[in-house]
Nucleic acid binder design. Sequence first.
RNA 1: GGGCUAUUAGCUCAGUUGGUUAGAGCGCUUCCUUGACAUGGAAGAGGUCAGUAGUUCGAAUCUACUAUAGCCCACCA
Length: 919
Amino acid sequence: MMDKHYDAKASEAKWYPFWENNGCFHDEPDGRTPYSVVIPPPNVTGILHMGHALNQTIQDILVRWRRMQGRNTLWLPGTDHAGIATQNVVEKALKKEGKRRQDLGREAFVERVWEWKRQYGGTIVHQQRMLGNSTDWRRERFTFDDGCNRAVLKVFKQLFDEGLVYKGNYIVNWCPRCGTALANDEVEHEPNHGHFWYIRYPVVGSARGQSGEPYKDYVMVATTRPETLPGDTAVAVNPKDERYAHLLGKTVVLPLTGREIPVIADDYVDREFGTGIVKITPAHDPNDFLVGKRHNLAEINIMNGDGTMNELAGAKYAGMDRFKCREAIVADLEAGGFLDHIEDLDNQVGHCYRCHEVVESRLSKQWFVKMKPLAEPAIAAVKSGEVKFVPDRWSKIYYNWMENIQDWCISRQLWWGHRIPAYYLKNADSAGGVRGDRSPSVPEDLVFVAETAEEALAQAKAKTGNDALTLADLEQDPDVLDTWFSSWLWPFETLGWPEKTKDLDYYYPTADLVTAQDIIFFWVARMMMAGIHFMGRPPFKNIVIHGIVRAADGSKMSKSKGNSLDPLELINQYSADALRFSIALITSLDCDTKVNKEKFEIGRNFTTKIWNAARFMEMQEQALGNGEPARFDGRTAFDQAQSLSADDRHILVACDRACRKVNEILENYRIQDGALAVYDFFWTQICDWYVEYVKDSPNKSVSLAILRDVFWKALRLLHPYMPFVTEEVAHQLGYLKDGETIMRAEYPTGYTDEEKAKWGLTDGLYDFVEAKREAITALRALRAEYKVAPSTFVKVTLAVDADHEKSVASEIPSLKRAMRAESVEIVEAGRDLPMPSKITKFGTVYLSLEGLVDKAAESKRIAGELAKLAGFIKASEAKLANANFVAHAPQAVVDEAKRKLAENKDKVAQLEKLAKLFA
RNA sequence: GGGCUAUUAGCUCAGUUGGUUAGAGCGCUUCCUUGACAUGGAAGAGGUCAGUAGUUCGAAUCUACUAUAGCCCACCA
């Protein structure tokens, strides 16, 4: 006997370990068609949020569905080592102990991070289990585990050998106090009340003027950072700015230095801002850096790592703090007559998120991947249709980025991550290479890239001819690689690459990649490139992009705003099934998903409905079995029935249609439509309609057998969406024995043609029962209109066409029940009866009121109806009178229009007769 | 400034190549404690599909423009 209430927590606690421990999530390569998906690995420091819930629900639905279809399925889980985030977490912990990472030293610090990972890194992996994810935990991976590490080193080495990895200058955010580079998201921009200094740069050749007019001919440059002036290597104007067109090609004198620099034209310059002339300092501003690259300008680094000026700033300023230097330079400009005036300016200035020091843009040497050669085949793979975006519009955004791709800076000044496998020969003669302050300055040809230090040593010996070199003569690059440098290998490094494993051979390429739009560039595009380059084939066939989960008002969810929902809390309150089903039902791939707590009641209520329907079936079966559960084998019981009633056949057709529809929908990744289709089948068709029929079925054992069959199909259809309740109910109702699981049950595909023929399942029959429902609804509506209580038994008359009379007559018993009718009488269509009526496809439904009607109210209502119909009929007639419509529109559309017109004309006739009665 | 998307019922959204009187859920109104379920059942109200013009026999659907909103990128020397 099933409990009165479904205990979701108990069910989840029971079934998840059952599945996991019995290998239900695990397949080994075999002869079947594989279906493989890799999870977008969450940060190991992360905690589960609604975005994960959405992303993983979609994947689990697809994976569970394919698995039930009989595909050999792999959903590979794992986490991302998230260099910066993880290092910060551990550094924060250290800070509480009053230590910095430098106090521990590199090796000890990294060990400390590993320790943290072992202790806390399982949090999100644990939380994912709460969602019900059917990920194969036996194949769980980590982007920094040994295998991934090997893959990363091999890839770096290969790209280096291919000339696709190189070292080059790059502007980084630099905190002078911490002595480290910062990632963009570690820089906090704050409003600043600053100044705009207007400075005159004399045009070369212009004469020094008289009294107070230092130069007759100059360009006016406005800057917020005058201390960078000694690093200027050009001034720039907009190419479309006719005011300055005459300056192009000329050179100007850089004040205080006497150096001559060119005037260049670049689109970057905003004509409206400042004077429309910008000083270009490639070594100290990210935009100027790019301008400098475009125009081949020299990069003069005038600052030390600690924020003081170096000798390139000029002897006078060398060693001076940058802000002191600013004052000194402004004073000297003024003294030299170069300073025109000063304005106040409000702008944004970046600060270090940790020490709040003003961040400096600083030129440094970093490692890069040359992206263009990798991007081209990745573009082609999408253009050719080999890889598809779902929805397709994302391919445009992908092309846009790929076609304008910039080289990828992959080095990070961190300790937690894959250390760059580049080795430098110590004590080599410096060739003046500048690479931050902490790294060795060696000529490029004394850099050895190898997967191991030993191999690097061998290279060094060969290169220098010095056999006496030892490992101690080598120093490894101190930087680590960007976390994405491991993530972009995820679809094959997790399957064993670079080893040639069975898994790799069988599961690569994966089928679908499901992710949110925000990491198309960071991750998806790069995986495409890596997959094609290293595996020779794109890593997946379909890229399914879904929206972002937003708060009810459309804003981003954030903890600080307090508008975020915690999926774990929702699971606790409503159940994992409720969370999954609701999110699937309200999510469209085409747009962001707005959620509030109430939305999750849909799923919760549906769970309750399923449970209660199951209880109903159990009770009915027990009643029929005199207290013992009498379980009717779906097939044999109704196979042997002499004939099935219209309602029995109707639910079988509905079931068949639902099965086909859901499969087709899922083929097209329409997760939402699938949820709706199952929901509608279960609730509307089974519960609201068929169960009501079963209660009074004249052939109850057959009807119960049918219910048992469609219920089992419905549970399996639903399982990908609601894994726990479907498993529990399947066992409670005896569809499965102990030790079996619905996860491996066959996904329903509908009935065979043979079965349909045997049971008389036709579209016409389906429509007939739908028409009957319409008639019953019409009668209920008549009751409501005439305020006849539902408990009152009424007399009903049905006017039907002669050729339908027989089939309608056979439904009289069920009509009587559903209509709560004392009698249902059938008369020929066209009879003029003095009763309120409604016209339906089933025939005209008359409700006998036996003089209980308020005539005035009824007249009024009829008048309203007639007016409404008159409008429609007029429009309809006009349409059908249009020769063009009749000629061009499909026949079915024309026929339907004719049918509607006739039907509404009938309605008018009926109403007019009725109106006379009440007059 | 460059790119993308959206605008349909009070709210959140469907509406697949143009073709029935535009749908669902929630919310709202009225009625119903008949043993599966009040986390339920029944009936109902509510939309000139953002606006304008065009293409077409026919437009929520295609085109152009306008208005409004959002997202991504670049961001102010």
